[in-house]
Simulated assay, not measured.
Amino acid sequence: MKTIFHKAETRGSADHGWLKTYHTFSFANYYDPERVHFGTLRVLNDDYVAAGKGFGMHPHDNMEIITIPLEGDLQHKDNMGNQEIIREGDVQVMSAGTGVYHSEFNPNSDKAVQLLQIWVFPNKKNVKPRYDQISLEDIKRDNEFYQILSPDSKDQGVWIHQDAWFSLGKCEAGKEATYQLKRAENGVYAFVIEGEVTVNDKPLKKRDGLGIWDVEELNVVCNTNARLLLMEVPMEIKN
């Protein structure tokens, strides 16, 4: 088993007033040659967007972009004609492919929105751009991991152009759960959204991250009530 540990307070950060953001991996003005990506996981941004503020239209290409609101709402618009509100309990995916423009805006006048934005390198370049979002209400489970993303459009959750699987877990203090990797050559990046957990004997606190590879499964013990995101991704970039 191999691991890499990123404490929450070691992340890059920026405060633009309307936007407070934390970067697990190198992004924008934050650069650390030791923290550029974890396998095909390229970006893990933890964003706080003030009421009535947001990102104007901007471009992306050849990247799988996943957005998970943690609190509040986010309004999405793009040049494919999509205009949607994503809320806490939803997950959104956008395959940028040959190129897409989109904006993200907090439509609420009285509260910030907190969200995770995640980028994954695709296994196919220059695909037709696509957009999707789903509610997790009907698939969420307590005290076990439930899948929210996969490579298969017929599987549970949203899908992307990569052999990756994301799972969420919400557990009570004292509970344990096991995650079995889907592919032996993959690794898993575990990110603690709330609370404190122990993953394969490694204690983690809120917003800590732990990358694990050369392992068949993860054993998770919830030391407090906790929420955890597991991102299983290929360790080698191929495209």
Rank of each mutant, 00 (worst) to 15 (best):
T3V: 09
I4P: 00
I4A: 14
F5S: 01
F5Q: 10
K7D: 11
K7T: 11
A8S: 15
T10A: 08
W18K: 06
W18V: 03
K20Q: 13
K20V: 12
H23G: 03
T24E: 07
S26W: 06
A28F: 14
Y30K: 07
D32G: 08
R35W: 15
V36L: 15
H37A: 14
F38L: 10
L41C: 05
R42M: 06
V43M: 08
L44P: 04
D46V: 09
D47C: 03
V49I: 15
V49L: 09
V49Q: 05
A50E: 11
A50V: 09
A50N: 10
A50D: 13
A51T: 03
G54T: 01
H58V: 13
E64D: 10
T67G: 06
P69Q: 07
D73P: 06
D73S: 13
D78A: 06
D78R: 04
D78C: 05
G81M: 09
N82T: 14
Q83V: 15
Q83G: 12
Q83M: 11
Q83H: 14
E88V: 15
V91W: 02
M94T: 05
M94Y: 01
G97D: 03
T98C: 06
T98I: 11
G99M: 08
H102V: 08
S103Q: 12
F105M: 15
P107R: 09
P107H: 09
N108L: 15
S109Y: 09
D110A: 11
K111I: 11
K111A: 12
V113H: 01
Q114V: 10
L115V: 10
L116G: 07
W119E: 03
W119T: 02
W119C: 00
F121N: 04
F121D: 06
F121C: 05
K124A: 14
K125N: 11
K125G: 12
K128I: 10
Y131M: 06
D132W: 02
Q133M: 09
I134T: 08
L136T: 10
L136E: 08
E137P: 00
E144K: 11
F145L: 08
F145Q: 08
Y146T: 02
Q147W: 01
I148E: 01
I148L: 07
S150N: 08
S150E: 03
G157A: 08
G157Q: 03
G157V: 08
H161G: 00
Q162L: 07
D163C: 03
W165L: 07
W165G: 01
S167T: 13
L168G: 05
L168C: 09
E172W: 02
A173D: 05
A173G: 14
A173F: 08
A173S: 15
A177E: 07
R183L: 05
E185D: 13
A190S: 14
I193G: 02
N200K: 12
L204F: 05
L204Q: 00
K206D: 00
L210I: 13
W213F: 13
D214S: 12
V215D: 15
V215T: 15
V215M: 14
L218C: 06
N225T: 11
A226E: 02
A226T: 03
R227L: 04
L229I: 07
L230F: 03
L230Q: 00
M231C: 04
M231P: 00
M231W: 04
E232Y: 02
E232P: 03
P234Y: 06
M235A: 06
